[in-house]
Design a protein around this nucleic acid. Structure first.
Lengths: 228, 228
DNA sequence: GATATGAGTATTGTATCCAATACCGTTTGA
DNA sequence: TCAAACGGTATTGGATACAATACTCATATC
């Protein structure tokens, strides 16, 4: 009898890693805050061992930092970090587009087109949140269509670090309109399987996203200073 | 008094992570082999706790995989993995070139030129190992010159996964000559600060490296079949 | 003879324990 | 009044102990 390969059972620290990751991106632990071992042990109902192993994993992912003998805290992304990460995300998404032009089936491309149409619909109605989610979905589709797991993994890890910023940053009307235009061009290039063009469009697209994110962050910082 | 920021003391599991990483890339534990907890505890003279934490970190980096209740083994890269990784490395190096054209000082560029000259020298004399190392150094210089820590980190992690393959694969005379030509073009683009061109050259360069690696791997596989 | 079964052993996952370090409030001396 | 020193407490790093799971090899059954 053929044996199933993925025995993949989950261990405690695995569960904890996922939970903590979610809690951190959900802002339950804001950047810079400490993660107290004891209370988290109580919260999860486990001993310190698996929890500490989870910390090591999250630290390796760059989500938290370990201060020897002084605990664990959520990493604080500086403006420079955000800019750097977006630079890298740019080429990663660009690559995903390039590869998708080679590897996606016509059906898959049609599906992306469909998502796009729905997204434009939301844009016309001025519905920001549904727009945002469809936008995400489109990029995920293209990333998946590239058929490169290592690319997808690296992308997920990096984009996780700026997810919070992305949620916070809302577009200006002008930028929003521009973004929709870029998306139209993307779909076009994809349907023509023009990888080189899609590559350029996506890189540019991400550069613009980075600008938007930077603007939001600067505004938020300014506000903070004012409050103080 | 101003306090120093980087308190960065090293913990046991940190040391172990570095050691294990080196041991694995040095092929002391070939891909697919198991990492026995007990003997490694004896070897390092530590208890299981820090060793297991180190395992979790290495697993997060993708260097080993954890089989629940069945131990830890060095991840086996398939041919597909290698190809995927090289695809990603291609755009990462390309980006580093692009950014270096913007951000490197003239002095730094001159230093790269110098390394290049020495490398060509070794090529002319047919000295493969020194050539190999200078080659590495040049790419590292450009990666550093990009001034993007997140890029550098992602790159290091991914390239670590194919380091072994790179070591194993030795170039054909023809490919070697071609590589030197590509390197000359790279230096040229860098000195002219033509980021766009350097981007394309580096991506192409990595594509060719991937081809070379693939050829070696296929040859090695064929040989293995023969022996069997 | 080959496959299945099960006891014994080894190895792993988690919990607990001890030691070392950092944190905090108080006291004491200038 | 302020700052440095001190002692107690909390928290962390590492070692050990216990429990659960998987592996091994011998025996039994067909």
């Amino acid at each position: 009898m053929a044996r199933r390969k993925p025995i993949a059972r989950r261990t405690l620290h695995d569960e904890i890693v996922s939970s903590l990751r979610d809690m951190i991106t959900a802002d339950e632990f804001p950047p810079g805050s400490k993660l107290p071992e004891k209370s988290l042990c109580d919260y999860f109902g486990v001993s310190r061992t698996p929890l500490r192993e989870a910390f090591k994993v999250l630290a390796a992912e760059g989500i938290v930092e370990l201060l020897p003998s002084r605990g664990v805290r959520v990493t604080q992304q500086t403006l420079e970090d955000i800019e750097e990460i977006f630079e890298v995300l740019g080429v990663l998404e660009a690559l995903s587009g390039d590869l998708s032009c080679l590897r996606m089936s016509d059906d898959e491309i049609a599906r992306v087109r469909e998502l796009h149409e729905r997204m434009v619909d939301h844009f016309n109605k001025g519905e920001r949140l549904p727009y945002f989610h469809l936008n995400q979905q489109i990029h995920e589709c293209i990333m998946a269509g590239a058929g490169n797991r290592h690319l997808a993994e690296v992308y997920t890890r990096l984009s996780g670090k700026v997810r919070r910023t992305r949620y916070l940053s809302s577009l200006s009307e002008r930028r929003w309109k521009q973004a929709v235009g870029e998306h139209a061009a993307m779909i076009n290039a994809l349907e023509n399987r023009d990888g080189e063009r899609l590559f350029r469009i996506l890189r540019e697209h991400l550069k613009n996203k980075a600008d938007a994110a930077r603007a939001t962050l600067l505004a938020a910082e300014a506000e903070q200073h004012e409050t103080k």
